Amino acid sequence: MTAVIGTIRMIWRYPVKSTGGERLDCADVGARGLEGDRLFAVRDAGGKLGSGKNTRRFRRMPGLLHLRSCYPDGPAGPPALLDPHGEAVPDPDAYLRRYLGRADVALAREETVSHFDQLPLSVLTTATLDWVRSAVPGVPVDERRFRPNLVVRTPPGTRPFAEDDWLGRTARIGDTLRVAFVRSSERCAMTNEAQQDLPHSPLILRAVARAHDTRLDALATVVTPGRVRLGDSLQLLR
């Protein structure tokens, strides 16, 4: 038996980690996640990746979220880096060095170490997004705050954080894609960061922390590769 819990409303891919991404109508999904997702990152001379936080692997590089990235010719080719006005820059490395004020940064393709913070696929429901909006009235909130790959439209009355019920279960998306939900993301201050038309606000992370221990979404691994399309159903398998 299966239970349909929603349909795919948005598909997001982020060709360059920690920049704004591109919305898609469909995407191939393999063991690594959406084809081309976070395949590139801004890397410094010490090997750390540009991010909104400082950790053993990541270096905070303020301003990256005001940029966007896309694959003009599909994920088989190189990504384009778009400036804050949405214009593709001719030389991404030179632009990043000027923009970030660092002489040691360059776009780097993933090698042996994954660019992902955690697992390769992030799924978020409209029910949870609606809750966040209600928790921080007056603060512009949309899915870009949380950088999911898939946004699932859930039926009216679905409780927020319904993604918790998926953990430990397998789901079918569309005709062939199967994923296994493992855990939820632990959110950091990056959810508060300004990006494009979204202003900085510390209220978002505070609200998620109070209500749900900073956890939000469902992270998954890919069991059976396939293709995801807008409008596909997401079915939990029993």
Rank of each mutant, 00 (worst) to 15 (best):
A189H: 13
T19A: 00
S184A: 11
R238Q: 14
C188D: 14
L82V: 01
T224S: 15
R13N: 10
L167K: 02
Y99A: 08
K53N: 09
D165F: 03
R172L: 14
R210Q: 12
K48T: 10
A106V: 02
G77I: 07
G36N: 09
T214V: 12
K53W: 09
P78M: 06
R102Q: 08
D37M: 10
E87S: 01
N192W: 11
L34H: 00
A218Q: 05
S201P: 09
D117M: 02
A127K: 03
R56N: 13
N192D: 15
L67W: 06
R172W: 09
E35D: 13
Y95F: 14
G30A: 13
E186F: 04
A106S: 13
V105S: 10
R178T: 12
D91S: 06
L198K: 07
T154V: 15
L177C: 04
S201F: 08
V228E: 11
E87D: 12
V222S: 09
R43D: 06
T2K: 05
R147Y: 11
T191F: 11
G36T: 14
R178F: 08
R153Y: 01
I11C: 01
M61N: 03
Q196V: 13
L24W: 08
V105R: 06
D213S: 08
R206V: 14
Y71M: 06
R153Q: 14
H212A: 14
P78W: 11
E163C: 01
L203Y: 12
G157H: 05
Q195W: 08
L234E: 07
G33A: 01
D44I: 07
D232V: 10
R109K: 14
T158L: 08
P75K: 00
P79Q: 00
G33R: 07
L124E: 09
A218I: 09
R215K: 10
V182G: 04
V223D: 15
L167Y: 13
Q195A: 11
R109I: 14
G21Q: 02
L219M: 03
K17M: 02
D142R: 00
P90S: 14
R97P: 13
I5M: 12
D83E: 06
D25M: 07
T176K: 04
G33T: 04
K17L: 07
A88H: 11
E163I: 11
P75N: 00
K17D: 00
L124A: 03
P62C: 05
R227E: 12
L82K: 01
L203K: 09
D213K: 10
H200T: 01
L129Q: 05
A189F: 03
G20A: 04
S201I: 05
P15R: 03
P72I: 08
E193A: 15
E110H: 03
R68V: 07
T221D: 10
T170L: 12
V139G: 08
